[in-house]
Design a protein around this nucleic acid. Structure first.
Length: 192
DNA sequence: CCCTGATTCGC
DNA sequence: GCGAATCAGG
């Protein structure tokens, strides 16, 4: 398979939508997630741009020597130029917030329950976006791999669980993890 | 072990 | 340019 305009278009679209590389690969067919990621990088959209892309520009290119075990001596580490600008006003963070009363019946552990604290508009937007395509599964269908974020009022039939694929070890999907946990300041970090 | 994206490097 | 292999991490 080759990267036709159409396929690239789909790739861009899905990537900016937050789809994972494997999902995109599956959708396109004929390619692996590696191929997708590789293409994403070559296209220069490794960073999920599109909307609230925080301009984390000029990352200090630590002039540290890497004593590690270099397979091959790289020529240099050209710190990315990172021309970050274009800051489209973040669309209003979803005023769509019907009176949500206590979710979760009588459970004790309930990490979520936003509204009290300020959650990044981006995170909220992400959640509402996710809730639209949530699988809406019942409690019976929850597994180790499904997001267990409850939505709606348990007292009504308008209650379901997100059900989207959760990260290993985490009870929620990426989006819900974002609003469930405050300390999400440990991300975006150049490895190696 | 499941998954994620990131990077390298032979092709 | 491509993507498998590899790596780093949740």
């Amino acid at each position: 398979m080759s990267w036709t305009d159409e396929r690239v278009e789909t790739l861009k679209k899905m990537w900016s939508e937050g789809q994972s590389a494997s999902q995109i690969a599956k959708e396109l067919g004929g390619v692996t997630r590696n191929a997708v990621i590789g293409k994403v990088h070559r296209l220069g959209l490794s960073n999920r741009a599109g909307a609230g892309a925080a301009p984390k520009a000029a990352a200090a290119a630590a002039p540290k020597a890497k004593p590690a075990k270099p397979k091959a001596e790289p020529k240099a580490k050209p710190a990315a130029p990172a021309a970050a600008e274009a800051k489209p006003a973040e669309p209003a963070p979803t005023p769509k917030s019907p009176a949500r009363r206590a979710i979760i019946p009588a459970g004790q552990p309930l990490p979520p329950q936003p509204s009290t604290n300020e959650i990044p508009a981006e995170a909220l937007a992400k959640v509402s976006e996710v809730e639209k395509k949530a699988k809406k599964i019942s409690v019976m269908e929850l597994t180790e791999k499904t997001c267990k974020w409850p939505v709606g009022d348990p007292a009504t039939d308008d209650f379901w669980f997100c059900g989207l694929p959760s990260q290993a070890g985490k009870p929620y999907c990426e989006a819900h993890v974002g609003v469930a946990f405050q300390p999400m300041s440990s991300r975006r970090d150049r490895r190696r």
